[in-house]
Deep mutational scan, measured.
Amino acid sequence: LYHVLGLDKNATSDDIKKSYRKLALKYHPDKNPDNPEAADKFKEINNAHAILTDATKRNIYD
């Protein structure tokens, strides 16, 4: 999941948040209406963010 956000395992919560915002804006379906690959990437980014920002889920993942 870290690679989805372009981060390593030592990433801080701020790093995760910044990377998520940058990538979410880039791949958001509203910005890429005719690109199904961007929509899939956006879903991956959201999933990675949801797990890595939840301390319990992140510990389980790590």
Rank of each mutant, 00 (worst) to 15 (best):
H28P: 13
A55M: 08
D34M: 01
A50G: 09
T56Y: 04
K31Y: 09
L25M: 11
F42D: 11
A39E: 10
H49I: 01
N35G: 07
I45F: 01
R58K: 14
D40H: 15
K22I: 09
A55H: 07
L25V: 13
D14W: 06
S19R: 06
A50C: 01
N32K: 06
N10A: 07
A48H: 03
L25T: 13
L52A: 07
E44C: 03
L23Y: 05
L23E: 12
D30R: 09
L5F: 00
K26N: 06
D62G: 10
A55R: 10
A38M: 10
G6M: 01
I16L: 07
D40V: 15
A48I: 01
N32E: 06
R58D: 06
P33N: 05
A11P: 03
A11S: 02
N10H: 03
N46W: 01
D40I: 15
L1G: 03
A55F: 06
L52P: 07
D15T: 05
L52H: 01
L7K: 05
E37T: 13
A50Q: 07
D34Y: 06
L7Q: 06
N46H: 12
I16Y: 01
K41L: 06
K57E: 13
T12C: 08
L7G: 02
K9A: 14
I16C: 04
K31G: 06
A39H: 11
F42A: 07
T56V: 05
L5A: 06
L5Q: 14
P29T: 07
R21V: 09
Y27K: 05
H28K: 14
H49E: 05
K31A: 12
H3G: 10
H28V: 04
L1Y: 13
N35D: 03
A50I: 06
P33I: 03
D8V: 01
A24E: 13
A38H: 10
L5W: 00
H3R: 09
A50P: 01
D15E: 12
K31R: 15
T56A: 08
D30I: 04
D30E: 13
L1N: 15
G6W: 00
D54R: 05
N59Q: 13
A38K: 06
I60Y: 12
K18T: 13
F42H: 04
L52E: 07
G6P: 00
G6T: 00
D15M: 06
I51K: 14
T12L: 00
F42W: 12
K17Y: 03
K43S: 12
K31P: 05
L23R: 03
K41D: 03
A48F: 00
H3W: 07
T56I: 04
A55L: 08
K18A: 14
D8Y: 04
H28Q: 15
I45V: 13
T53Q: 09
N32H: 13
Y2H: 03
D40K: 15
S13L: 12
R58C: 04
H28A: 12
K9D: 12
I16R: 02
N46K: 12
N35Q: 08
P29K: 08
I16P: 02
S13M: 13
E37L: 09
K31M: 03
D15V: 02
Y2R: 00
I60C: 14
L1W: 06
A48W: 00
Y20T: 08
D54S: 15
D40C: 13
D40G: 11
H49N: 12
Y61Q: 14
T53P: 01
E37K: 13
K9V: 13
Y2W: 03
V4P: 01
I60A: 15
A55V: 10
E44P: 02
L5G: 01
D8E: 08
N32T: 08
R58T: 11
L23K: 08
S19Y: 07
H49D: 05
P33W: 00
L52Y: 03
A48T: 01
K57Y: 00
D34G: 14
T12A: 00
N35C: 04
K17I: 11
T56C: 12
E37I: 05
L5T: 05
K41T: 09
P29R: 04
I51A: 10
A38S: 11
A11F: 00
R58V: 05
P29S: 10
K57F: 00
I60H: 10
N35K: 09
P33Y: 06
D30L: 12
S13F: 07
D8G: 04
S19M: 13
N10K: 04
I60Q: 15
K57D: 12
L5R: 00
D30T: 14
Y2P: 02
I16Q: 04
N59V: 11
L5S: 07
N10L: 06
E44M: 11
E44T: 03
Y20F: 15
K41N: 04
K18M: 14
D54Y: 00
L1R: 01
Y2D: 09
K57R: 12
I16T: 02
A55T: 12
L52V: 03
A38W: 07
I16G: 04
D62L: 03
K26S: 09
N32P: 01
D15Q: 10
P29N: 07
D30Y: 07
G6A: 03
L52G: 02
A38E: 09
